[in-house]
Simulated assay, not measured.
Amino acid sequence: MRKKIFFYVAFFLFSEVLSADIYKYVSPDGKVYYTDRPAHRFYKRIIRTRPSSYNWAVGRMKGNKQKYNDIIAQAASKHQVDEKLVHAVIQAESAYHAQAISSAGAVGLMQLMPETAKRYGVRDRTDPVQNINGGTRYLKDLLKMFNSNLTLAVAAYNAGEGAVKKYNNSIPPYPETRNYVKQVLALYHK
């Protein structure tokens, strides 16, 4: 079952024992879809569930957002990054689920790859405090690297700073990255 999502995630799992991996697809027009049954290969797994382990429901994201507000505020202040930007990245990356795992191996609220986590001293990528601090420091460095250009920093967060530099400091021509930038900026400006 697919459901169009603009600014919140609706997961449809109807019982305590029902579970499934959750996949995300961003269409060329920027619309985001979540499902437990991907219709094509462009869906990316964002949450890997274990039997009887998770029961995601509508409204869960809001509760999780509240749960992490203080950690996000502290990290944003400490690293001098706009708190709204950190929220936008977390919502786009993991929908506020600390145990989210992508098919590429990114983990946690800010979906840190192993190399990025190591670079920023994150030992446990599922630990919200470590993950948010590491991801926020990475955002700060990207903003500095790209002269406070929010669009390029967000593109680099998704595709890597090397990809942005490779394309002469512009958004790489990857549909996923272009849609990701639109999604994060829409959430940021909301």
Rank of each mutant, 00 (worst) to 15 (best):
Y23L: 05
P38V: 13
Q91P: 04
A117G: 15
V32E: 06
S53R: 11
S103N: 15
G121E: 04
D127L: 06
Y138G: 00
I71Q: 08
A75T: 08
H97W: 04
P38H: 09
L143P: 10
R50G: 12
P51F: 08
I90L: 08
K44R: 15
I72K: 13
Q111H: 10
K62Q: 13
K140I: 05
T136P: 10
Q99P: 01
V107S: 00
D36F: 06
E115K: 11
Y120I: 05
A39G: 09
E83H: 12
E93F: 08
L150E: 11
R37C: 08
D70K: 05
M145S: 05
A117P: 10
A75Y: 07
Y120A: 05
S103R: 11
I22T: 12
R137S: 02
F146P: 02
K84M: 06
V122H: 06
N131K: 08
Y138V: 00
Y120W: 09
M145T: 12
S148G: 04
H79S: 06
H40Y: 11
T116Q: 02
A106C: 04
N55L: 14
L112T: 00
I132Y: 00
A39D: 15
Q99D: 02
M113N: 07
G105C: 04
E115M: 09
R137P: 01
G105T: 05
D21I: 12
L139F: 09
I101F: 14
D141L: 13
E83A: 13
V86Q: 03
K44S: 14
A92L: 12
H40P: 01
A20D: 14
I132Q: 02
A73V: 05
N64Y: 09
F42C: 11
L142G: 00
R119W: 02
V86H: 00
I90S: 07
Y68K: 07
Q91E: 13
G63A: 06
T136F: 12
Y96Q: 05
D36N: 07
S77G: 14
F146T: 05
V26S: 13
L85N: 01
S94T: 11
G121L: 11
M113T: 04
G135N: 03
S77T: 15
I90T: 03
Y25M: 10
Q74D: 14
L85R: 00
G108Q: 01
G135L: 01
K118L: 10
Q99L: 05
N147Y: 09
K144T: 11
Y54M: 11
L109C: 07
W56F: 15
A73M: 10
K31P: 02
A76I: 08
A57T: 10
A104M: 01
Y33R: 12
Y138L: 10
D127I: 00
I71P: 03
R119Q: 14
L109D: 00
K31V: 15
V89P: 01
S77R: 15
V81P: 03
V81W: 03
K44M: 03
T49H: 04
K84R: 15
N64E: 14
N64S: 08
W56E: 03
I46V: 15
R48I: 03
P114G: 08
L85D: 03
K65P: 00
N64A: 03
R60N: 03
T136N: 12
S52N: 14
Y120S: 03
L109H: 04
S103K: 09
N131C: 07
